[in-house]
Design a protein around this nucleic acid. Structure first.
Lengths: 173, 173
DNA sequence: GACCCCATGTAATTAGTTACATGATTCG
DNA sequence: CGAATCATGTAACTAATTACATGGGGTC
């Protein structure tokens, strides 16, 4: 998926790896922190697939930069991805859900403790995201993404409440 | 993560691969469909790591079955995982979010079309999950998981509405 | 006869992530 | 002097997913 995001960023303007890393993290409001190596790895895969092409820009003092731009194929692939809605059943691969349920089955008391800890985590996360959201100069796209996250956090917090209620009413098993 | 779910299932009762696949999908209410090969792959890794151990059960007509159970180490590892809350920032790796935002930046009109399609998808998904949710004999744990999914779907639908509003009010860029 | 269920496995691919390696500049 | 920023890359590891291979039994 990172792959498509990088393509989208390159579609806005050609950039080199290091620059992309920063643009990516800014767009995501810090909710997806990248190891720079990931960017270089992904870029070289994209280049192998013919979706992007580099132009080497020589620099006197710093290392040369490889500025990538989309090929025709890359632009086509990006458009295809962006136009197609995410299909099929929504999938449940969220660690929190599975963990709480697994613990709920195995050990209801421990599950209640886990829920309490998890709720704290989520409240902290909510506060932090709200802070980022309120920062001046935030790109509107980033604001939207953070709103999405906040809505989900709210939903998940409500779910934790549900779990607690059901665990106290005779358990999950 | 599959790994821990399999451990959790094996903690309830020792099972062989094929059986696990079904138990897994039943627990998740069909929201995570497995290729059987995934189970066998994961099981052999777990065995390599000493977290589970097999007992071969001979069968006359059908192929022999390898019934796995947790080792002490496996039980410890499972407990460790279940007790520890999911830490750190909530991360935004959801394809829908990124796709809508990418398209919103690149092509607002296409983004509105995408949102409409995505909303239909989500409504269909909601209906289907609600149907599964209402099925008789559904394990309570599965019910909880589906509730979590439904809450998230609601949240995401509300987010799509937000996106649409913002796209109509001058866009995301 | 075709297709699904039972039952297992190996190999390969795709993605994300980390570790490791290199080296100059700038700021406190 | 040390830390952060700039700039790139290779190699390895983990996890999920898919493709491929095998073969008996039951049902329509």
């Amino acid at each position: 998926m990172l792959k498509y995001l990088l393509l989208a960023l390159l579609a806005r303007s050609p950039q080199h790896g290091y620059e992309l890393k920063n643009a990516f993290e800014e767009l995501l409001g810090g909710t997806w922190v990248l190891n720079v190596a990931q960017v270089y790895n992904t870029l070289s895969r994209l280049e192998d697939d013919g979706l992007i092409e580099p132009t080497v820009v020589h620099q006197e003092l710093l290392p040369d930069r490889k500025v990538y731009s989309l090929t025709l194929l890359g632009r086509k692939e990006l458009t295809r991805w962006m136009e197609e809605p995410v299909a099929g059943l929504v999938r449940l691969r969220e660690e929190v859900f599975l963990k709480v349920v697994a613990q709920g089955i195995a050990n209801p008391d421990a599950a209640l403790a886990l829920i309490a800890l998890q709720r704290d985590q989520y409240l902290d996360a909510t506060a932090e995201i709200a802070r980022t959201r309120a920062a001046p100069g935030l790109p509107p796209a980033t604001g939207l993404l953070l709103d999405g996250l906040l809505l989900r956090l709210e939903a998940d917090l409500r779910w934790l409440d549900d779990c607690e209620v059901q665990l106290r009413n005779g358990g999950i098993r």
